[in-house]
Structures are given as structure tokens and as C-alpha cells.
């Protein structure tokens, strides 16, 4: 319980830091960003928007402390302002309409990569020097060295443009109305294959190496020798004795990656024009839509923190050592 409370306090501090960062960044911009934005956007802004922007950049007359307090208060009321590029939609509405796509893409890719990588890693470690152990890791490390977006564009060119197997952009065909039906699900799935595949391709190596190294460490433990001495079958020793204990670090990184799902697929979303949060973040940066940008950043941070807290809770159950110390 003490452990859980301590972690909770830590996440509260982390969230406070990101709120404060969000508050300070616009105020650090030199000059008068609002009038610069007004000239850039061709003065198509409503008076409401201008007022909101001035407040955002700290150009209203109130003292900084007061601005800060009212900013924090509005965050906790869930008010993140109104989007400028999609005026007058509130920021929270823009985000909630897109976060589902990001989670779908991120979760699919993460689960596939983690499962495949962990199984491969366990097998590689169990047969040291075999094909899986000697040939695959270098290949995966090499593939993992490519920039995410570069591989994604290569895949888009090869399978999308040249071969035409998969659609080029968006999460579903233009003109199709989202609904809970089999044809629509199939449509979404075909749009999901390429983006998810590229993420799996670059991340599976990390999972495999992590599991392999943890497995090598457990394989030299005394209880493995003991199990062998008892005459247990090799397969049983591998799965029940070695892999089970080597899995703990992978569980941790799975939980941490769970949090990064919301913000992690930014580049992939940009390349495939996938209508998720990351794609929207870049769009809002390009449109100088600062309220939306800040809202998305806060949402992503909150997602990371919540996921990490859940991992901590699960961890207490999985690893008895945490409960004791």
C-alpha cells in the first residue's frame, strides 16, 4: 500500500511538471506571437479566439501567479480551450474523436510485436548458437536501425504505390460511414495492416533481444539445474521454469510501452495520414493551433502516467519482492 501511494505521489508530481511546462512554453516565445500569428493566418480570427490566444501566451494583464492558478484550475475542470484551426470545436472534442484510432493502431502493433518478439527471444536463448540466436538478432537490429518513417515510406511505396495491395492513407475509405459492421471492420483492418506492420518490424528486435538476455540469465540459475536433475521434459523447463521468470522485464516494458501508445506512433501516423492524435499534433503545430497542441500533449502525458500507474499495480501482484521491500 505504501508503495502504491508513493507511486501515486510521483505521478502527481510528473503531471504537475507537464502542466507547468505547458504553461511556461508559450510565455517563453520571444516577441508578440499573437500578432505574428494574426498576420500569418490572414486575420480570419474571431475576437474570442484572439482573446483566448492572448491569454494563452500570457499577454493579458493579470499577474503570472494568478494566470498560472487559473490555468491549472481550468485543466482540472477538463477545459482545454477552443481549437483555432477547427474553430469553434473545443480541444477536448477534437482529441476524443481521434484518440480511438491511435489506440487501435498502437495496441495492435504493440501486442503483435511483443508476443512475436518474446517467443522468438525465448527460443533463441534456449538454443544458444542456433539459427534464431545467431542469424535473426543482427538482421532485426539492422532493420531496427532504419528511421521509423523511412521504413514506413518504403513500405508505403512498395505495397501501396507499386503493388497496390494496401490503401495509401487514412483509417478507412473515403465516403464510408463509420459503423459497427463487418464490412467496415474489414475496411479498417486493411488500412491498419501497413502502419501496424512497419511498427512491428522495427520494434520486434528490441523485444526479442530483451527476452533473450533475460532468458540467458535465468537459464544459469540453480533451479533450472534442479529441474533438469529431476528429469523434467526440456519443453516444460523452458516454458514453466525459465521463460516464466524471464518474462518479468518484458512485462514491465510492455506496460511502459502501453503508455507510449498514445504518443508513440506519431511518425507512422504522419506517413500514413492515419487520423490519430499524433497526426493531429503535427497538423496543429503546422496550423499554429497552440491550444490544440497543448491539449494533445497533456492528453498524451496523462495517458502515459495512467498506464504506468496501472503497471505498478499489476507489478505488485506479479512480483512478491515488491510487496516486501
Amino acid at each position: 500500500m505504501r508503495f502504491v501511494l508513493r507511486r501515486l505521489g510521483f505521478y502527481a508530481i510528473a503531471f504537475w511538471v507537464s502542466i507547468t511546462l505547458n504553461f511556461m512554453l508559450p510565455r517563453l516565445m520571444p516577441g508578440d506571437p499573437v500578432s505574428r500569428m494574426l498576420t500569418q493566418s490572414g486575420a480570419r480570427l474571431e475576437p474570442d479566439q484572439v482573446e483566448q490566444l492572448r491569454r494563452l501566451f500570457g499577454l493579458d494583464e493579470r499577474p503570472v501567479v494568478e494566470q498560472y492558478l487559473s490555468y491549472v484550475a481550468s485543466i482540472f475542470r477538463g477545459e482545454m480551450g477552443v481549437s483555432i484551426s477547427r474553430f469553434p470545436t473545443p480541444v477536448s472534442e477534437v482529441i476524443s474523436s481521434q484518440i480511438g484510432w491511435t489506440m487501435l493502431l498502437g495496441l495492435t502493433a504493440l501486442v503483435v510485436a511483443a508476443v512475436i518478439g518474446t517467443v522468438l527471444g525465448a527460443l533463441a536463448a534456449w538454443r544458444r548458437g542456433g539459427f534464431l540466436d545467431s542469424a535473426l538478432p543482427p538482421v532485426l537490429v539492422f532493420v531496427g536501425s532504419f528511421p521509423y518513417f523511412w521504413l514506413a515510406m518504403g513500405a508505403l511505396y512498395l505495397f501501396g504505390v507499386t503493388l497496390g495491395w494496401f490503401p495509401l492513407r487514412h483509417a478507412f475509405d473515403v465516403g464510408v460511414v463509420p459503423e459497427w459492421s463487418a464490412p467496415f471492420a474489414a475496411n479498417v483492418a486493411t488500412h491498419l495492416v501497413l502502419p501496424a506492420l512497419t511498427i512491428v518490424l522495427v520494434s520486434v528486435g528490441g523485444w526479442m533481444l530483451g527476452m533473450r538476455n533475460a532468458m540467458i540469465a535465468t537459464a544459469s540459475e540453480d533451479y533450472i539445474t534442479m529441474a533438469e536433475a529431476k528429469g523434467l521434459r526440456r519443453g516444460r523447463i523452458m516454458v514453466r521454469y525459465a521463460a516464466r521468470n524471464a518474462l518479468l522485464p518484458s512485462v514491465t516494458s510492455f506496460g511502459m510501452s502501453l503508455g507510449f501508445i498514445v504518443g508513440g506512433a506519431l511518425l507512422t501516423e504522419v506517413v500514413f495520414a492515419y487520423p490519430g492524435v499524433g497526426y493531429q499534433l503535427l497538423a496543429s503545430v503546422q496550423a499554429l493551433d497552440f491550444p490544440l497542441m497543448q491539449g494533445i500533449f497533456l492528453t498524451i502525458t496523462a495517458a502515459v502516467l495512467i498506464a504506468n500507474f496501472l503497471v505498478d499495480l499489476v507489478y505488485v501482484r506479479l512480483d512478491p519482492r515488491v510487496r516486501v521491500s
Binding site: A14, P26, L28, L266
Partner: peptide, 24 residues
């Protein structure tokens, strides 16, 4: 450790994008 862990937890690429957008 607290500072380190907070920075570790803040999502990297989005933070990168936001920082780059605000700074000259």
C-alpha cells in the same frame, strides 16, 4: 531520481514536437 524519472516518463517525440514548435 525524481527529476530523472519525470523526464523519462514524459513522452519523447510529442515533447520534441511541442518544444520545437515553441522555440525559435
Amino acid at each position: 531520481s525524481l527529476v530523472t524519472n519525470v523526464f523519462l516518463l514524459l513522452p519523447g517525440l510529442p515533447l520534441l514536437v511541442v518544444l520545437a514548435a515553441f522555440l525559435p
